[in-house]
Design a protein around this nucleic acid. Sequence first.
DNA 1: TTGCGTTGATAAAAGCTTTTAGCAGAAAAA
DNA 2: TTTTTCTGCTAAAAGCTTTTATCAACGCAA
Lengths: 334, 334
Amino acid sequence: MTKIGDRRRTIYDVAKAAGVSISTASNALNDTGRTNAETRERVKRIAEEIGFRPNALARGLLTKRSHAVGMLTNDTYGRLTLPITAGVSEVLIDHGVSVFLCATNNNPRLAKLHLDALLDRQVDGIIFTATRLDLKPPVELSKLPIPVVYVFAEGPADSVTFFPDDEQGARLAVNHLKALGRSRILHITGPEDYLAVRLRARAYRECCPSGADVMFGEWSEEWGHEAVERVFVGSGEKPDAIFCGSDEIARGVIDALRDMNISIPTEVAVVGFDNWEVVARQTRPPLTTIDMELKELGHQAGLAILGLSKGEQIATGITRLPCSLVVRQSSGGH
Amino acid sequence: MTKIGDRRRTIYDVAKAAGVSISTASNALNDTGRTNAETRERVKRIAEEIGFRPNALARGLLTKRSHAVGMLTNDTYGRLTLPITAGVSEVLIDHGVSVFLCATNNNPRLAKLHLDALLDRQVDGIIFTATRLDLKPPVELSKLPIPVVYVFAEGPADSVTFFPDDEQGARLAVNHLKALGRSRILHITGPEDYLAVRLRARAYRECCPSGADVMFGEWSEEWGHEAVERVFVGSGEKPDAIFCGSDEIARGVIDALRDMNISIPTEVAVVGFDNWEVVARQTRPPLTTIDMELKELGHQAGLAILGLSKGEQIATGITRLPCSLVVRQSSGGH
DNA sequence: TTGCGTTGATAAAAGCTTTTAGCAGAAAAA
DNA sequence: TTTTTCTGCTAAAAGCTTTTATCAACGCAA
């Protein structure tokens, strides 16, 4: 009477149950080597029956591919990180690859700790994400023996980097407003030292060659509010549309316009940037805005790291992925 | 002339460089077995010098402990998940344990996929988090051969579960208002079918035995707005304080009060629940609210899974961790 | 001298998988 | 018939670490 413990089944158990050798079992399960079709099916069936699943540690030890990647982020709050990570994970899980999430809190010591742990685990690659665009990676990632992909962060010149296409997004917003017949479009946005801010402002200016007006400020509702007050108190021609650099700014803008009894979108149409649902859905009226397609960004980063880890050639440099327009009531579009 | 590749150093390299056997090297590095103090130091120094770091896969394969845990969540958006995960990771990294993040999107197939991947990787334990309190785990976690800890989710009766202490948090809010001299406190909150809502309402009622008034509704700004209008249009005595079930509701409440030219906090003090910074910091005035200490929740869950994976006894059942009060201007406190 | 306990080190096994090289038998070619 | 080619399978090695059992040397007691 054989005692069957509750330990995991190994390929040895499969081989024994199927009456073949371990190597035949392995070959059959992985469709490698030369195996009789009948034997192969039988082995697979038995493996299924006894609930065999290969030990990823043993496999990784041998093949030098752990089928895991690390995600290194400095973003605690997670407004960007989690959707991106979800996108990465979503596309990788189908390839049997799992994701380690490491929050560095902008702490170099912690970043080093996480990085070492990832390397010890033989991860197949690392995806680095930063919230602040102008922030450099906290540790030296460029000399690593494994591929690195940057998302929302600048890597060295020959690295693989993904960003949303800020200019295209801005054009999307402005052209939407123009298509609705608006002609005096104002741009209220964040601090000029952000690259994304400059890119969006440039695209905006190119779309509105006559009378472009950009107001740089902060990433806050407060600033949106203040900017609107500043514009609408004086005399002179008023804008009939406002393109905001973020949904938070847009929220301040909308609140200020409501305070002044200026109707949205009839008198002034408003478009935001981010499609941060918790903000964009709750403004009154709900906010038309630009979605940066964070999940898709994650998908692409995941596919890139997957390809790189297999040794494929991936185009280096910055890839900018298209944004999309989400129309709600604040622009009066449809 | 020996060719030195750029492959990782193994313990074999250490042993060779130190002129000892592999087992001696291992014993010296791990302070196990019998080793001469001098030899031990020398081996450690050399390991450091040549940059040896043990291969986590090989170690895990042998010791059956991968020093990794899985985090299974159904929360895509991440308002709760990311802070909790950061807390888990923060406490575990010091013990050399890394965290796999798996977003299930409420999709049972995906959950199964992630779970199997985690088991294949021999994770030492799993932390399950759900956003909706009344949501059951999407897969059968109770029969797993590894420990499971639940956060913000209900596990089976004898499981280890962590929640914020909703009642204590509610008392904190109400007592804060009472200490400020408010006597007619209204509670505007979310749907009654949430356990957290019922717990908070109960604690509120116990603190305000005379004239407790609870308005159940939705988790939205809209609802906060509507509730305030409903209360303040009629005649009769008006509340001098409002305790809201979430920061979003509080935001609606504050906006509505401002629309009615009711001053905050002079006429009506407002307290929220969540300390969701992006909301609580941006209301005018900024919102006094209850912080659920999500990071600490993560810390505790991490420590619990760590202990369980080592075979320690951990108290089962639901542990409720204290919330804290964050005072801003909307309550007029200090 | 023999026997014993201690110390410091080592060889070898174990953990589970994939892969390489090789082997026996049968079919095909010479 | 003999030689070659296929086919299907297997033994063994490799991957890197920890742990168990063993061993040599030495001092000390019998």
